[in-house]
Amino acid sequence: MFVIDCPNCGPRDQSEFTYAGEAHIARPTETENMTDAEWAEFVFMRTNTKGLFAERWWHATGCRKFFNMLRNTATDEIHAVYRIGETPPKVTANLPATPAGEASIGSGNDAVKIMTRDEEAAS
């Protein structure tokens, strides 16, 4: 269970929130002029990022406001919450080196259970 820092209500348990999908996907306005493929891109296609991902949450039991959140999906680290309409802040994240890889720490997955020699040398 995460703690999510609602921009209106402050830090609350994840059980109060509803996930609401990828952020920053604006609904097209001139839909009549769009091709099927363009429209399908809006309706169906999402990026499924491993790494830093902007997503929307809804504080269902509290203020009932939607807001944006920057989460590292590789580690579940929450880097920022910001309001609808705002641009995502710049953050430094512990990202996977490759799309199929692991963040250096935080996923608990096999590849990063044990410190590397470089990490040992640095510590």
Partner: peptide
Amino acid sequence: AQSRGKLKWDAELASFRPGL
């Protein structure tokens, strides 16, 4: 380890202990 910290091998103990 459940907290997702990284372990480190300790040669004297011949075992893992908390690393990062």
